[in-house]
């Protein structure tokens, strides 16, 4: 009963976040337009590099374009999480949220997943239509689809922990934005945003496989264009491990941050 009430509480937060996000439909429209341009450009680029029927390290042009469709849909599904937490901390609003019967981190997580569900779904829909028009539908199997969906959710959890950890740095430093900038560049590179990390030199590929960034973009996109169960298990394990580690780090950082309010004032 108690658990059910808690579930109802945080699912209501997620629902409200999804609803709020729909108010930004103009911003989403602009993002979709940008998304279409990126897909168009890369579709042409891959056509030039590997030709219509060629392959690159075993990937066809169609696979590479659909890979990018997924990674971009996920990345552009960025939510207002950093801005929200940063504002809460800097304006002192966090103190007032703490006066409600809520766990602040779970509240932010529910809000993030609510927003992300809307933005990522719309991005996938719009991006999928553009990619379909540009290059046609890939041969998607049901297991690939299921694997990709599971990994998108796990990747989103990893991303939440990373982004919230960056935003909570506002407790200790004047600006957390530079850290976000570094994070976004790591997603570009070690996350395999534009090309699968299998195409990287061996040492970078190994490094990328060990880090959490590939769980956010590479792992779900790779599963979508043709992953296998062995790879799925490995990706799931990595994502879960990072989730646990980062969640621990996040709650440690949060408790230190709240202590900071007590030491330095609200």
């Amino acid at each position: 009963m108690k658990l059910e009430k808690k579930w109802r509480k945080y699912s209501a937060v997620a629902k409200t976040a999804a609803q709020s996000r729909l108010a930004y439909w103009q911003e989403m429209g602009a993002r979709t337009f940008f998304f279409a341009i990126v897909l168009f450009t890369f579709s042409g680029l891959w056509g030039r590099v590997i030709g219509t029927n060629g392959t690159l390290a075993g990937y066809s042009r169609q696979q590479l374009v659909w890979y990018l469709t997924l990674t971009e849909a996920i990345t552009l599904g960025a939510t207002s999480l950093i801005r929200e937490i940063e504002q809460d901390v800097k304006s002192g609003q966090i103190a007032y949220l703490l006066a409600k019967p809520l766990n602040y981190l779970l509240y932010q997580a529910a809000y993030y997943f609510g927003e992300m569900a809307v933005t990522t779904s719309l991005n996938l829909l719009a991006g999928g239509l553009v990619a379909w028009a540009l290059i046609g539908l890939p041969a998607i199997t049901l297991p690939c689809l299921i694997q990709a969906l599971v990994l998108i959710v796990l990747g989103a959890a990893v991303r939440f922990c990373l982004l919230a950890a960056i935003a909570l740095l506002s407790f200790f430093v004047e600006e957390s934005r530079p850290f976000y900038w570094i994070y976004s560049k790591l997603i570009f590179t070690l996350g395999g945003l534009f090309i699968p990390i299998d195409l990287y030199p061996e040492i970078f590929r190994r490094l990328a496989t060990l880090l959490p960034f590939q769980s956010i973009t590479y792992a779900p996109a790779r599963a979508f264009i043709g992953g296998d169960w062995q790879q799925f298990v490995s990706s799931t394990g990595t994502a879960l491990l990072w989730c646990i580690l980062l969640a621990g780090l996040l709650s440690f950082e949060f408790s230190r941050g709240v202590k900071q309010i007590n030491v330095n004032g609200g």
Binding site: R8, K9, V13, Q19, A23, P101
Partner: peptide, 16 residues
């Protein structure tokens, strides 16, 4: 971004 009605719904859930 949402009407008071929706905020009330959410607060109702938050306060269980």
């Amino acid at each position: 971004h949402i009407p008071p009605a929706d905020s009330f719904f959410l607060l109702g859930r938050i306060y269980e």
